[in-house]
């Protein structure tokens, strides 16, 4: 594992609360991105991502330094997100607007008075469409597909994060891929 990360973790374990902010800085983008892609809503994603770090802090003693910190924090994040998705119990039909994406507004990430050029708008709409397609995947395929194709993780890492046998991870990626193939072509 990265020596710097190891050092920071040791400091946190010793009770140095401020050192934890360095861990947050290092991993916040990854954690936020995964939770955003899985839940499809910026507010909830931020909430989940912060909660993930809070849990990491509270349970830092149980973190095994021989393993990658990213695997551990991803695991906390995906667990929290899957819990959140279950609680929402979306009762949706395939043709409905995907639940959880109604707040998905890329335009809101820019200042209101900024006029976006045409190609930017096309790009944003394309991105919005991709996220909608990700949200249509059943959560268990969704997490595997995101970790594999957006986070570029190995099957082994994904199996550690999701606590599933590698064969199961592969099956989920295949099914997710197949579902996307049917919709996107």
């Amino acid at each position: 594992m990265d020596i710097v990360v190891k050092k920071i973790v040791r400091e946190v374990k010793k009770g140095n609360q401020e050192a934890f902010s360095e861990l947050v800085e290092l991993y916040k983008d990854k954690v936020y991105h995964v939770s955003y892609r899985m839940i499809g809503n910026t507010h909830e994603a931020q909430d989940i991502a912060q909660e993930a770090f809070l849990r990491a802090y509270m349970n830092i003693e149980s973190y095994d330094e021989e393993r990658k910190f990213s695997t551990w924090i991803y695991r906390i994040t995906t667990n929290l997100t899957i819990d959140r998705i279950r609680k929402k119990k979306p009762d949706f039909h395939l043709e409905d607007r995907v639940s959880g994406t109604e707040n998905l507004d890329y335009h809101s990430q820019f200042a209101d008075d900024v006029e976006l050029p045409e190609d930017q708008i096309v790009k944003l709409e394309m991105q919005q469409w991709i996220q909608e397609e990700i949200m249509r995947l059943p959560p268990k395929y969704r997490s595997a597909v995101i970790l594999k194709y957006l986070e570029d993780l190995s099957i082994k890492e994904i199996s550690e994060i999701l606590h599933l046998p590698e064969a199961t991870v592969k099956t989920r990626i295949h099914r997710g891929r197949e579902a996307l193939r049917k919709r996107l072509n």
Binding site: Q17, E18, F20, S21, V24, E25, K28, D29, V31, Y32, H33, Y36, R37, T42, Q46, A49, Q50, F53, L54, M126, Q127, I130, Q131, E133, I134, V145, Y149, L150, L180, L184
Partner: peptide
């Protein structure tokens, strides 16, 4: 197509929020 999804960064003041 899925891989062309852009990467988002955590919102501003995220770390402060956690701390």
């Amino acid at each position: 197509i899925i891989q062309s999804a852009s990467h988002f960064e955590a919102p501003r003041h995220f770390t402060e929020g956690v701390m």
